[in-house]
Design a protein around this nucleic acid. Structure first.
Length: 836
RNA sequence: GCCCGGGUGGCGGAAUGGCAGACGCGGCGGACUCAAAAUCCGCUGUCCGAAAGGGCGUGUGGGUUCGAAUCCCACCCCGGGCACCA
């Protein structure tokens, strides 16, 4: 054996045990499972907390965005557990969806084994970062025991009229070969494939979310959600107040035609009625044929054909010339405010899907109407007096009514109700609230989703699959082809079925549900995942819901979060859920995204980060700490800004300080504590108070700074000439480990156990002793004209008079004074400001 | 166009009316070492100055205040949401 080998050997025997994350982390992860530390039973006596991160789509091993999300959730689960709460921390998988089906089309293999493998990979990733769940409660959207209740709930909605089938113009994505929800269409493009969305008329299933529009709007006020998310939902629901009324159809003489149904219009500005110089119908309006004169028929038909050809994105582009965007019907209607006959046009800027599909046009107060009137040579009458400085076209601001007979002189807010009163008196219309929100189109022409449990019978019509036959599960032997229809449609064994009512041959519904249906109730199932009689019991849901803290990406601000609220309300009304549970998520936190080099991180760009590799290289605790340290959780963060090396270095410093065989700690004292020791005790309690507050308000980045500062302080302390006091140091380190335990659970658990024999994760959360937070002296700042000129150590309880006297006595302060001070502001003991 | 956020060192950020730049990264210097790495200690906004010390400084301009990164007004820039919704 050579000398050099010996010397390496020797040095290893005297070196303290090193921090080896890959050795300790798997052991602790297994232990949390074996000890069932984070499993909770429904009859657990502790006060309950429900902490939930949005369940993920299983796309394989966790990506860095997942890791960030689940680290925040895991920290809270552990923190609340140490605070004595019984924490429900479940995990599930949003396991239906297009990627698995697209893979099936590519490989010909069934999506189930593909999905199951991805679920396993993601589960393993989550365990590898030290995230803890009650795995017994895991739910998966594609699990028949979950599908059964998704279908059961669909049936209850159907029976209550909250699910219905209708022919509707729908958004069709040619790339995905399916219908999309309004929410999945962004700027006329499919939010998944980016294809231009086409409009088609199809028979579809809808959930009647519009029944809840008002409540969904009102109850936002009571939620502890980010204002941004609440605002986005408010805008999406889009409530507007106005009037719906009829415009009588004019005869040749310009008077109202007695036998014709008036044309219904909706306006938010009934006060501007006297300025209505034309009216407009949507090109899709059902009364277009009836209200088009023979002379104009050719022009109208040409226009309608042109509009029908356009995609929504073309139709919305404002660049199209306005004379191409509308056509005269040849008919006139009567403005009921002044009795004048006005022309009726078609224009593509009026949508059939909002209001009545027809409008009164007031060019003086609406810019689109103004532009249209200019192009078509229509009169413009202002009915609101613009402010003196105004030099634009249409005036939409406040002002007094003009050119409006009996409304003249009234402000907009006064004129509106008076105009509505007039319409009511005339028997033409009434006050009306409109919402932008549409019903939720839930059917998808896809295989890998939850089948809609309905049957079409020639004799009985639409019949639901009986409850005892649920779940309807798709067969395995299907052919995966992109046909524009679900492969179920070509599977005779699935398609053909006896009608449950009359027994005659009938056909199954082959469409499946939007995956957002699955995610609209999974948080309820977590409370009672073993229930095979009901989706969940009311008692179990009452025990845990609402979710105390929901965590997820802001990209779900509208879709998922609105649907989940709708489901919770509807289930309560159907007495499936507890009556009092009107809102599912009491508090919501939306964490920021992880970017890469300023751009989006995506597989197609090849700039993804592998958390698995990072854990292998640095340890899960270092990755967790870097996530917490780099930025406030709500903000987007760039992977390039992560400081993994610094975080790993810090953990080594903690290890060296806290390890029982530390080479750092020498000259340990016992006996009476000194001033230096008292300062450490104070610093320990200050840290407890600080970190507790920071965990509560999601200030994880400054909590990490607190750990680092305290560790730096302890390093100075143990290296001081005087040496550390045994009990003081021990308690400081033990406390630090407990405070860090929710953030970096493996190293904290390991060191705490080596030091005390106890399990940090089962210990009580430290509480700051107010008596120990008190300090005897503080640094008082002395300013002259607001500029700091001196700092003086003073007793905490110094009087204002003493503070002022000390400040004036300072030589540096004196050198900045020129004669008698004009004024002295004293904020003892922190500050004195002398105005010279 | 409308509605929200936000703008602080070389970089990520801290400070919510009272010491601007905590903590970390990076950089510089020192100790240890034959040497390097690791580790430990110190310095690090900027300008003037040998130093002591001083000037300037939180997107821009104004205001309120004894005192403003923080509050108010106007503007510029960046990010996000909504956008023919009558």
């Amino acid at each position: 054996m050579s000398e050099s080998t010996d010397s390496v050997h020797d040095s290893e025997t005297v070196e303290p045990g090193r921090y080896l994350p890959n050795e300790i982390e798997p052991r602790w992860q297994q232990r949390w499972i074996d000890d069932r530390t984070y499993e909770i039973d429904n009859d657990d006596p502790r006060e309950k907390r429900y902490v939930l991160s949005m369940y993920p789509y299983p796309s394989g091993p966790a990506h860095i965005g997942h890791v960030r999300n689940y680290t925040f959730g895991d920290l809270l689960v552990r923190y609340h557990t140490m605070n004595g709460k019984g924490v429900l921390s479940p995990i599930g998988f949003d396991s239906f969806g297009l990627p698995a089906e697209n893979a099936a089309i590519a490989t010909g293999e069934h999506p189930r084994p593909f999905t199951d493998a991805k679920v396993e990979e993601l589960s393993s990733s989550l365990r590898n970062i030290g995230a803890v769940y009650d795995w017994r409660r895991t739910v998966k959207s594609h699990d028949p025991s979950y599908m059964k209740w998704t279908q059961w709930i669909f049936k209850r909605f159907w029976e209550a009229g909250l699910a219905y089938r209708a022919n509707a113009p729908v958004n069709w994505c040619p790339g995905c070969q399916t219908v999309l929800a309004n929410e999945q269409v962004i700027d006329g493009l499919c939010d998944r494939s980016g294809d231009v969305v086409q409009r088609r008329d199809m028979e579809q299933w809808f959930y009647k979310i519009t029944d809840y529009a008002q409540e969904l709007l009102d109850e936002l006020d009571n939620l502890e959600w980010p204002d941004r998310v609440k605002l986005m939902q408010r805008n999406w629901i889009g409530r507007s107040e106005g009037a719906e009324f009829g415009l009588p159809i004019a005869d040749e003489s310009g008077g109202p035609k007695v036998d014709a149904e008036p044309l219904a219009v909706y306006t938010t500005r009934p006060d501007t009625g006297f300025g209505m110089t034309f009216a407009v119908m949507s090109p899709e309006h059902p009364r277009v044929d009836e209200l088009t004169t023979p002379e104009q028929a050719d022009a109208v038909n040409a226009f309608r054909a042109e509009v029908a050809d356009k995609s929504d994105i073309d139709r919305m582009s404002t660049s199209a010339a306005l004379d191409k965007r509308g056509v005269f019907t040849g008919s006139r209607v009567v403005n009921p405010f002044n009795g004048k006959a006005i022309p009726l046009y078609l224009a593509d800027y009026v949508l059939m899907t909002y209001g009545t599909g027809a409008i009164m046009a007031v060019p003086g107060q609406d810019q689109r109407d103004w532009d249209f009137a200019k192009t078509h040579g229509i009169d413009i009458v202002r009915t609101v007096q613009p402010s003196a400085a105004f030099d634009g076209d249409a005036y939409t601001g406040d002002g007094v009514a003009i050119n409006s007979e009996w409304l003249d002189g009234l402000a907009v807010a006064e004129a509106k109700p008076k105009a509505i009163d007039f319409l009511v008196e005339q028997g033409l219309g009434n006050r009306k609230v409109n919402f932008r929100l549409r019903d939720w189109l839930l059917s998808r022409q896809r295989f890998w989703g939850c089948p809609i449990p309905m049957i079409y019978c020639d004799a009985c019509g639409i019949v639901a699959v009986p409850d005892e036959d649920l779940p309807v599960v798709a067969p395995d032997d299907v052919e995966f082809r992109p046909t524009g229809e679900s492969p179920l449609k070509y599977h005779e064994g699935f398609l053909n079925v006896a009608c449950p009512t009359c027994g005659e041959p009938a056909r199954r519904e082959t469409d499946t549900m939007d995956t957002f249906v699955d995610s609209s109730w999974y948080f309820l199932r977590f409370a009672d995942p073993w229930n095979d009689q009901l989706p969940f019991s009311k008692e179990a849901v009452e025990e845990f819901l609402p979710v105390d803290q929901y965590i997820g990406g802001v990209e779900h601000a509208i879709l998922h979060l609105l649907y989940a609220r709708f489901f919770t309300k509807a289930l309560a009304d159907l007495e499936v859920g507890p009556k009092s549970l009107r809102e599912p998520m009491k508090r919501l936190f939306t964490q920021g995204m992880v970017r890469m080099g300023g751009g989006k991180m995506s597989k197609s760009r090849g700039n993804t980060v592998s958390p698995e590799q990072t854990v292998a290289d640095h340890g899960a605790d270092a990755l967790r700490l870097a996530i917490l340290q780099v930025k406030p959780p709500a903000e987007d963060v760039d992977w390039e800004d992560f400081q993994l090396d610094g975080c790993e270095r810090f953990l080594h410093r903690v290890w060296r300080l806290a390890a029982t065989d530390s080479d750092l700690i020498k000259n340990v004292r016992d006996g009476d504590p000194t001033d230096a020791d008292d300062a450490i005790v104070t610093a320990t309690h200050v840290l407890i108070a600080r970190v507790t507050g920071e965990y509560e308000r999601w200030a994880y980045n400054t909590a990490v700074a607190g750990f680092m500062e305290f560790t730096n302080t302890l390093y100075k302390y143990v290296q001081s000439a005087e040496g550390p006091h045994r009990a003081t140091l021990g308690s400081a380190i033990d406390t630090l480990l407990l405070l860090m335990a929710p953030a970096v659970p493996h190293i904290s658990g390991e060191l705490y156990e080596r030091r005390t024999g106890g399990n940090a994760h089962l210990e009580s959360w430290p509480v700051a002793d107010p008596a120990k937070l008190v300090v005897s002296t503080v640094t008082m700042v002395v300013q002259v004209n607001g500029k700091v000129r001196d700092r003086i150590e003073v007793a905490t309880e110094i009087t204002d008079a003493d503070a002022e006297r000390l400040a004036l006595a300072s030589p540096t302060v004196q050198s900045h004074l020129d004669g008698e001070p004009k004024k002295i502001i004293v904020r003892a003991p922190k500050l004195v400001n002398i105005v010279a």
